[in-house]
């Protein structure tokens, strides 16, 4: 019997201390799943866009208007992430577009395994028809979702005019990982001291390759550029 731990095994050892160099990312499991999600999305014939913003910046409203503007020309699917409720998915379904609601039950972000499940359900809804673009509306939160790759092809950050133009400076990590910066609710510019040039220049400092669009889902201002942007992504 081993006199260190009292067990019956004789072939194990108790060296005083053992140092192991690990050097492994703790995000690796998520990253692997994200890579497989990306392949999955491409097999579905689609590209995916991950929409990240604070609660209420206008993600769902943007999707509703985008569905109206694109009509039948582009086949859309939506994965909605919320802490609770099916409300956002219901809003999308009301437009006749397949939507899967992922409820995180408290978690402040979507991660790649959750989206994996969502893709399988979405695929089922789209049987026979397929998808061109899958929008993934992340949980309303400008911090946490930035850490978790979902397998998307493009990552968009939405910032609404009432939130203030200092947000890129305050949330650099979020902007650093983005491909597209969308300034929303521009119809409210006259009521707030939002400085578009400040927001743009700070965001470009953090992420020089960032594409930037400004629009209002209420008036439709700026939507032409957004629709063109989407069509360019699809033909790329």
């Amino acid at each position: 019997m081993c006199d260190v731990c009292g067990c019956q095994l004789h072939d194990h050892h108790h060296s005083d201390s053992k140092i192991v160099e690990v050097n492994q990312s703790l995000l690796e499991a998520n990253q692997k799943q994200a890579a497989s999600n990306k392949t999955h999305i491409e097999k579905m014939g689609a590209i995916a866009i991950n929409l990240i913003s604070s609660p209420g910046s206008g993600k769902t409203t943007l999707l509703e208007r985008t569905i109206d503007e694109l009509g039948d020309s582009v086949k859309i699917g939506v994965i909605e992430g919320d802490i609770e409720t099916e409300r956002d998915a219901d809003r999308i379904r009301a437009k006749g577009v397949p939507a899967v609601q992922l409820t995180t039950g408290g978690a402040c972000h979507l991660d790649a395994p959750m989206v994996h499940g969502g893709l399988h359900v979405l695929e089922h809804f789209g049987k026979g028809k397929g998808f061109d673009i899958i929008f993934i509306e992340n949980v309303g939160n400008l911090v946490c979702p930035a850490t978790f790759d979902l397998g998307e092809h493009h990552r968009a950050i939405l910032l609404s005019v009432p939130e203030g133009s200092d947000k890129p400076v305050k949330y650099p990590t979020t902007f650093k990982g983005a491909d597209l910066f969308m300034i929303t609710k521009t119809d409210l510019l006259q009521h707030f001291d939002f400085d578009i040039e400040e927001a743009k220049s700070e965001a470009l400092k953090i992420q020089p390759d960032l594409d930037i669009l400004c629009f209002s889902s209420t008036t439709g201002e700026g939507f032409d550029q957004w629709i063109t942007y989407l069509k360019n992504l699809l033909s790329a």
């Binding site: 005083d16 053992k18 690990v22």
Partner: peptide
């Protein structure tokens, strides 16, 4: 003044000591 964050997004388990 155009300084942009570079790298620094890692979360890594570097080393482990066990007995």
């Amino acid at each position: 003044s155009r300084l942009s964050p570079s790298g620094g997004t890692e979360l890594i388990l570097k080393q482990l000591e066990m007995e």
